[in-house]
Amino acid sequence: MTTTATAPAGWRSGLRDTLPLLGGYLPVAISFGVIASRAGFSPLEVGLISALIYAGASQFLFVGMAAAGAPLWLTVVMTLVINLRHLAYAPNLAEWLPRSRSWPWLMHGLTDQVFALAHARLPQLESERRLGWFAAASLLAWLVWIGGSLLGALAGEWLTARWPLLDRVMPFALPALFLVLVAPRFTSLRWSAALTVSTVAGLVLTLTGPADFAIVLAAACGMLCFYLLPAVSGRYS
């Protein structure tokens, strides 16, 4: 196909598409490095935790509970409970993944952000470019997460003191990215209402309730709205 011949390689598209995500990743990773370092973890340990667990919110919880002396089994269980939402991610992508034995291993990189990006981009790519796209996007995000954590552990306090504005401004890249990923899904009254409920619930629950479970609870509110509303436009996807 001519479009395939002229289109950039999958991995190159993956790297380019991931760039907006990194503006949000880096400050959070640096924050994790700072907090884990304060909790008594060495830079090597911080880097390894980020490389192995690779799940933002649950990493914060893990080092917090470990530092507070919580029972190890409870620390692990709570880490996994927070990550239960990831169960829904891979099945939503499976339809777009060409055959390869690499996919189960690549799922290590399936974070909230990479899922949102892949859910929007994979359907737009030719089948033969998808493996390269996902491998490059998830690998870049993973390396930046590890690098940011190390940076935070080694020099986070100095960095945030020297450029406090950067620390305040860069995290907005994440909501901005999610906005452009969610916006195209407002395709009908039913979808618009359910997505709005999910977004507003996420915001309100973070402000008022259990922030660690806000994503799951907010998605449940959105699902409830989705099934309570009749399919007015008759358009599902």
Binding site: R85, Y89, L174, R185, L203, F226
Partner: peptide, 30 residues
């Protein structure tokens, strides 16, 4: 292939993304 994903699971993916949007919209400095 397109009909294999249960409808509730197909809806859950976008709801999760919208929920993460809501969570991330809360500014670090309130």
């Amino acid at each position: 292939r397109t009909g294999a994903l249960p409808q509730w699971l197909a809806a859950l993916g976008p709801m999760m993304i919208a929920a993460v949007l809501g969570v991330s919209l809360v500014p670090s400095e309130q």
